[in-house]
């Protein structure tokens, strides 16, 4: 296999229309070309209805293109014989914590995916234990799944995807219904996975979350509007506002400061960067305040 050459995700001329061919047809994606390589951490931004979820659902063949093609590790998602390969390569975590948990017990829910794959019993147990320890839910493995907190449920959903040994995780606004602690723990878990080589594609409305990624893709009305590194994207505040999107708060503050203070950098993304810049400007060595 020429796996080294082939990008993990390749999308060409993707169109998708809901209820295609009826009088209620709703175009959702209108000609997307996109390549995502193994090991990338990508954020997918866009207003409600811009097509984020529809695009993600094409990446593990939950939806098939109306026109165009999607290849996952070289497999065309239209090819039903590779459906299992596609779905084990790309795992998905959905927005609503409760309705993606199948089993009543934590460890059995993690096992649901590999059970479907027909993984033999010994390896099944290993995979479940590994996935649960990766998302740090090992102590809760015998707990009833409906008694977990929302954040724990989302980490359980990640474990359920991990147990299939995917190369890529899709997060469809997975942090949207979590409290700050749950969100931070989920992002930590995703960050660790990415460091270990996992490809991550996360649809989100949270700009601080998007600032953590390596590449931002902005969708608008079913088309690619912007694409680039977070720093480059978030410098275009007016363009983003026109697309009904926000920028991270540190970026806004840095911009206000640079307009008033000569030589203060405008393109800052995180609170850490902002603090460093302020410290430098005040003439103290960076990090001395800590």
């Amino acid at each position: 296999m020429d796996g080294a050459e082939e990008p993990l995700i390749r999308i060409e001329g993707l169109h998708y229309t809901y209820q295609a061919g009826t009088h209620r047809a709703v175009p959702a994606l209108c000609g997307i070309d996109l390549t995502i390589h193994a090991g990338e951490y990508v954020a997918l931004l866009g207003a409600n209805g811009s097509g984020k979820s529809t695009l993600l659902r094409h990446l593990n063949a939950l939806l098939l293109p109306t026109a165009g093609n999607v290849w996952i590790a070289g497999w065309n998602t239209r090819d039903a014989t590779h459906l299992r390969n596609v779905r084990t390569t790309v795992g998905m975590v959905f927005q609503v914590p409760d309705s993606q948990i199948v089993a009543t017990v934590v460890e059995e829910d993690v096992a649901f995916g590999p059970e479907n794959l027909g993984i033999p019993e010994d390896e099944l147990r290993q995979r479940v234990d590994w996935a649960l320890s990766t998302v740090r839910l090992s102590e809760l493995q015998h707990r009833a799944s409906h008694l977990l907190s929302a954040g724990q449920k989302q980490r359980l959903a990640i474990a359920g995807a991990l147990a299939m040994h995917p190369r890529c995780l899709l997060l469809d606004e997975a942090t949207a219904m979590l409290d700050p602690v749950g969100r931070r723990q989920l992002l930590e878990t995703v960050g660790h996975l990415h460091q270990d080589g996992m490809t991550v594609v996360a649809a989100t409305h949270n700009m601080a979350e998007a600032a953590l990624t390596q590449r931002i893709i902005v969708l608008s009305e079913g088309q690619l509007a912007l694409q680039g590194e977070p720093r480059a994207i978030f410098s275009q505040i007016e363009t983003l506002r026109a697309l009904h999107l926000d920028v991270p708060h540190p970026t806004l503050l840095a911009r206000e400061l640079s307009a008033r203070v000569d030589g203060f950098p405008a393109d800052l993304l995180t609170i850490g960067e902002l603090a460093d810049a302020v410290a430098t400007y005040l003439g103290e060595p960076a990090g001395a305040a800590i």
């Binding site: 459906l83 779905r87 998905m92 199948v102 649901f112 959903a157 359920g160 995807a161 299939m164």
Partner: peptide
């Protein structure tokens, strides 16, 4: 509906 989608995403056939 959501549960079916989640089950399919985890290779339930």
């Amino acid at each position: 509906d959501q549960l079916i989608e989640a089950m399919e995403a985890r290779c339930y056939l």
